[in-house]
Design a binder for these strands. Sequence first.
DNA 1: TAGATTGTTAATCGATTAACAATC
DNA 2: TAGATTGTTAATCGATTAACAATC
Lengths: 244, 244
Amino acid sequence: MTNQHETQARVSAEALRGPAVDGTATRTEPLRRDIPQASVARLAVYLRALGVLSDDGRPIVSSEELATAAGVGSATLRKDLSFLGPNGVRGVGYDVERLRTRIEGVLGLDQGHRVILAGVGNLGRALAGYHGFQRRGFAMVGLFDTAPAVIGRTVAGLRVRDMASLAHAASALAPTVAVLTVPDAVAQQVCDQLVAVGVRCILSFVQAPVTVPAGVELRRVDLAMELQLLSFSTSRNQDGAVAQ
Amino acid sequence: MTNQHETQARVSAEALRGPAVDGTATRTEPLRRDIPQASVARLAVYLRALGVLSDDGRPIVSSEELATAAGVGSATLRKDLSFLGPNGVRGVGYDVERLRTRIEGVLGLDQGHRVILAGVGNLGRALAGYHGFQRRGFAMVGLFDTAPAVIGRTVAGLRVRDMASLAHAASALAPTVAVLTVPDAVAQQVCDQLVAVGVRCILSFVQAPVTVPAGVELRRVDLAMELQLLSFSTSRNQDGAVAQ
DNA sequence: TAGATTGTTAATCGATTAACAATC
DNA sequence: TAGATTGTTAATCGATTAACAATC
């Protein structure tokens, strides 16, 4: 859903926790823990708010203030952070830089990401040059297409490569994420190619449903559906019910 | 966040129900009903599946089959549809065209939508020409920007207008939805302008938080956050936890 | 009528929230 | 120590699911 109706995917966070500080392991039970999908999504929101605080030079922030900045309740924030283990100091608050680093680690952002994009059409071109990606640590490293008219052209500072060279190029580019912006008709086939060369994370903007094998994560952004959901709110508002 | 961590926005569906068939109104209590946000999102998914069935010429579909096509359980589907009142025939199934029309009506898609776009940059240009919008009944009718270099140019068959002419143009274009693809720094100001000319539905691709007055619906698509959420899944997978 | 499938009820499950004990 | 704020527990709330009665 954006998007969309995800089932409650829960995720092991054991290893994310890092090595236990306490070697004696007094408590053995709660080693394995899951982070609800909704909490993970909010972690990304907190990260953004922490970035702003960091730019302002704020060293410490309370759950109350950070929660307000993120638009959630402080109880929700503390509950979310508790999934990552202790992060703050009672009576004081959270160290902005430390919490930021922690969340980045949990979200797997600490190594940075190398992104390739398949399908350099209208949308693909825009995403190739989208500064929002770079700003958050996602570097676009390769563009691929099958159309001879597009191959070889330079888009967003990168030369568009032939899709046929994907296997060879991928070993050098070592992509960690792929963006899929190809036409519906070839989406599944291109997706299969991406999986075949080792991509394990795909962000799809294709309307048609695309399936991936277990172990590969596919996330779908459906722009038209976003408009449809907006549309629902409108029709509601027009029907006399007052927005609160 | 596409989406993103939405609080459980619930929505009046009383009027959506249409006039009661039974004029005698034997039951007075359950006239007002809410549709959970998650159900609304799935309605859009069902709509897409119904479109495929319709193209195939299928007159009737069972909850079991439609649910499978949409990737949910049949109980969930029937529960979702029950919010719209009776839609099927017991022992038979759902009339594909009738259900499709019903959901379109509930989502407010039956009148079509007229979309204007503010900010004809990289992303704006791509969205202006995005066929997925048209395909689902959203017609792009106006493009606006402030840069002299862009104003007057033709993008996706439309001449880019000066943002200063928004008020005048809006009265003729009668937009029902606006897409916001301007730089962070001017996002709030442009959003205010859109609201001022009567736009009540805004789809924002801006990273910075933008606020709207009550009665205006703003939905945010955060493309970088989508990648971050994918990133989390990756780091999970790499940590030895097996994807199920 | 027998068979099938909807619409709804009740049970389960998970997420949110408030309250507070732990502790800096 | 007193004040403050976290991390956690327990209660609330809502959404999902299974089962089945209604009914075509």
